[in-house]
Design a protein around this nucleic acid. Structure first.
Lengths: 166, 166
DNA sequence: TTTCATTGTATCAGTACTTATATAAGTACT
DNA sequence: AGTACTTATATAAGTACTGATACAATGAAA
């Protein structure tokens, strides 16, 4: 069936195992947050609720910057959280900005969410302590390598060396 | 503004830097594939085209298994690739299955795509060689740690130890 | 040979985003 | 006060998926 002369460069991608690992750990985290205890709360809301709890009311743009997403994403998410009763919004200093704040409903669960978050972080820290070289250190190692020469430049360089190119 | 008594467990997530790193590297890869040379080709099609080139025609289900996605995802993607002229489908051995195969249009570009893929993998390998402990080894270290005790069990354990819980 | 489960695909709805565009409200300059 | 620019939010459309459901075609068991 398979022509042995045609090699498959996609056969084993160097970083696919990392992605799989991450996905399965994300699934475990989601399992913790969806353990039917807090009905109607999406795992994707948790970070925003904890941020609002810790830092107090914020505008949509501030919240977006704080979680590293676009204001568009947060505009949509805040609307969904409002519809589900987890936050409410009041007019900010400006008539154009809106302060997002927790409701009683979310204030009643936020301590448990924080405990779950801490447990997750502690579990990650435990794993890091059990392996010979922590993942976080590899990340900074890679960041330093990319400072020397960017990933894009490296790919372009390898491409130029490839005889099948050009 | 911020109440100093309320700590924020989301402040610095152990593995957020890894995700950011990955996202920026993905963006660099996408930049390579979208360098206006091959018009109309989405970066997300590349892997499937290379697989079909290396292994020959496959059914949607086979292709889905081969790239690690659901058949639903591939049913949609194959339809999009067919509309864009990159593949065509013919009836398989069965009247229910469809063989997906490359068109002349995609056969004309697939060698360049393979070169780009090899260049990307070579760049990753180069980075791995420049750091003291390769990422791929950390991944297997973590996998072994999770075999001893699953991530879910670890989180549950930490949660049970938290005085703020229950 | 009818019944039933399985296999292969398609479609619909939903998720969690993105980019692009629109619109309202505020600021600065003339 | 009028024009232009900026800021804050909303909305529309698109992406790349997943899961659920539907529905053919096929194989196996009664």
């Amino acid at each position: 069936m398979t022509d042995p002369h045609v090699q498959d460069p996609t056969e084993e991608s160097l970083w696919r195992p990392l992605r799989q690992l991450q996905a399965s750990m994300d699934a475990d985290i989601a399992r913790i947050y969806t353990g039917e205890r807090i009905t109607g709360l999406k795992p994707s809301f948790v970070m925003e609720l904890l941020r609002l709890h810790a830092r107090g009311p914020m505008t949509i743009t501030e919240l977006a910057a704080s979680v590293g997403r676009t204001h568009s994403a947060l505009s949509q998410k805040v609307a969904a959280m409002r519809d589900a009763g987890w936050v409410h919004t009041v007019e900010g200093e400006d008539a154009r900005s809106k302060k997002v704040m927790l409701t009683d409903q979310s204030r009643a669960v936020v301590d448990r969410l924080a405990a779950e978050w801490r447990a997750t972080e502690a579990a990650v820290a435990e794993i890091e302590s059990e392996i010979p070289y922590p993942l976080s250190r590899v990340v900074t190692d890679i960041e330093r390598a990319l400072e020397r020469k960017s990933f894009h430049d490296r790919i372009a360089e390898k491409l130029a060396q490839d005889p099948a190119w050009g």
